[in-house]
């Protein structure tokens, strides 16, 4: 008895053999759908695009510390590599969990993880499995803070997609979680963060950070 795979592939071949000609692959630039108005480069433009996409941008750790105290964000998850670098800027009452505790998922006001890159065209942050210390930490708390080295920017969506290495989970994050399911009214913070923050600052992480072999 032929297996499922053989059934599907045989049916496909039989069906496609009926075509007198097959559509060739068109020639086009990978960034053909990047609007001219959204092209450009540079950190300042990226910061502007992030803000337009409803991502709150800070360019110093001090500003981030101030933001967290203004929001009374006292307990959060933090990437263990980032914690010592950010600690001096956070108030003395801010508690950082370096391991994500499922039992505290509703207590965490914020999560701090690293972003791998950014996309200027869309004002997106790029998160990957290799740089995100815990997927839940970047997702479950109301505030997510992505720390991004401003050197890691892609100009277009096409650059980002074709330029990413092998990572099993790449997420382009543009603004906060949102829905318009109920009467088309936009509400933020459905299952993911209600506030997306980016600390656009080179924290000078030591070489090999986040590498499991190190």
């Amino acid at each position: 008895m032929p297996d499922d795979r053989a059934i599907v592939l045989d049916r496909l071949s039989a069906s496609l053999d009926k075509l007198s000609e097959r559509t060739p692959y068109p020639e086009f630039a990978a960034d053909a759908a990047t609007p001219d108005a959204l092209r450009g480069r540079g950190r300042a433009l990226f910061a502007k695009r992030l803000a337009k996409a409803k991502t709150v941008v800070f360019e110093t750790p001090q500003a981030l510390g101030d933001y967290l105290s203004e929001h009374d964000a006292a307990i959060g998850y933090c990437d263990p590599d980032l914690a010592p670098l950010l600690r001096p800027w956070l108030g003395p009452n801010v508690e950082l969990d370096l391991e994500f505790d499922h039992g505290r998922v509703n207590e965490y006001a914020f999560g701090i993880t690293r972003a791998t890159g950014g996309i200027i065209e869309t004002g997106s942050l790029i998160l990957t499995d290799s740089d995100t210390s815990n997927r839940l930490g970047a997702l479950a708390p109301w505030i997510h803070i992505a720390c991004l080295d401003p050197a890691a920017l892609h100009e277009t969506l096409a650059d980002a997609i074709t330029g990413m290495g092998d990572d099993p989970n790449i997420v382009f994050v543009t603004g906060h979680s949102q829905t318009a399911d109920v009467e088309g009214i936009l509400v933020h913070g459905v299952h993911g963060p209600g506030e997306q923050v980016c600390l656009l600052y080179d924290l000078a992480l030591p070489e090999g950070h986040g590498d499991p072999d190190q």
Binding site: F100, D129, N134, D166, N169, I170, V171, V173, T174, G192
Partner: peptide, 23 residues
């Protein structure tokens, strides 16, 4: 939706990586 990109575009190519505790 008239957006230029949705909030999350996820490219998943396999099970979580060795260093990743969730997923």
């Amino acid at each position: 939706t008239g957006q230029r990109i949705s909030s999350y575009v996820e490219l998943v190519s396999g099970p979580r990586s060795a260093s990743q505790p969730s997923g």
